[in-house]
Design a protein around this nucleic acid. Structure first.
Lengths: 193, 193
DNA sequence: AGATAACTTACGAACGTTCGTTAATCAGGG
DNA sequence: CCCTGATTAACGAACGTTCGTAAGTTATCT
């Protein structure tokens, strides 16, 4: 499918240059056609962008959902740390997560409304899921007893900071060091000892 | 000074629309002149951007440095939490921090080298400063004994996640909740108990 | 099966607009 | 009288988008 090639190229340029900085001519050139031909597949730049955005959100959501559903429960230390590693892997496998991060926090001004809807959706779903897990672990006496919203929000904070580090990413060494540090402190902060 | 007015307007549009999305005509209009007149004050768009960037970096660096120098030591809990509040205040007082955050992580592609230099500079300085503080607190037996780099990196992770939340910022309630959660877990993770 | 119609995909040309930038000109104050 | 700062005018280049068209593919009907 040629539409997928276009979306792939668009993802690349949107990620590097942002919405305004990415030009349809460059995207078209990447897939070996003229920019006018893009209009046979998409209604325009906005349409292309929103489809790429939706795809990126869906794959990210799917990855997270299936990670949580494959959890062997009662091992929060393993499961949570594994989630962090999943984020790192997703980031290095494809560009979709980096695109998603950029656009969810710095969306094109005239599409902020549409972007926000996607952001809110994925956020509510993943947060509900994780909070439920924390509730279980706390009930089982595996974690510090407190409202599950606290470790949930704190953990998402760790995830966010790791993703920011992934964006910056001069070298892998520093990333791993920061991940280990954040994880170590976070785990001491939520575990019983 | 008229240059400052221009830089202020430029800061605003760079923050909202990014480098590529911000146009010199809009910036000029904001200060009540034609875009060609900007060239009496700056060599071009890149020059304007880099000066705004440098200013934003300097004020952020200064704020952090003077916060650390005014610390009554031996109260890590108060001092660290106060730093988080400082970040929140800086974000709400002026737009420079939001601009800085956006550009340090998603710089215009053709200026990445120049941006990186500023980012590395501010990062090394603040990190060295904070790590020294942690070393002191650990030596005084106030914090969990470990290499000071660990709580330093973890704390910067908390700071990053709070800043991301500040960027998103639908409502202040949620921000405060996330800050409290991250802080609570972080503090339990580094303190002795 | 073969002819014809309809749809899809790509392209050249051109649209109007905006971009950042340069040059020449002019007003005002020390 | 120069100097600083603002203006008007104009520049080439790139932007997203539209149109007409040609080629290729698929569907329909006799």
């Amino acid at each position: 499918m040629k539409s997928d090639d276009i979306k792939e190229a668009a993802l690349k340029y949107f990620t590097i240059h942002g919405y305004e900085g990415a030009s349809l001519s460059q995207i078209a050139e990447e897939v070996g056609m003229k920019k006018q031909s893009l209009y046979a597949h998409f209604r325009g730049k906005d349409d292309l962008f929103l489809q790429v955005l939706h795809d990126a959100k869906e794959t990210e959501l799917l990855s997270k959902l299936q990670y949580f559903s494959n959890l062997r429960s009662s091992q929060p230390e393993k499961d949570l740390y594994g989630f962090l590693q999943l984020i790192v892997d997703l980031f290095q496998q494809n560009e979709q997560l980096k695109f998603w991060l950029r656009m969810s926090f710095f969306p094109p001004a005239h599409l902020q409304k549409e972007v926000d809807l996607e952001v809110i959706d994925i956020e509510e779903k993943t947060q509900a899921l994780l909070q439920e897990k924390f509730q279980q672990w706390i009930n089982e006496g595996l974690l510090h007893a407190e409202h599950p919203r606290i470790p949930t929000l704190a953990f998402f904070g760790v995830v966010d900071s790791i993703m920011l580090e992934l964006v910056y990413m001069s070298d892998t060494k520093r990333l791993q060091e920061k991940l280990e540090a954040s994880w170590k402190v976070f785990w001491r902060g939520i575990s019983i000892r």
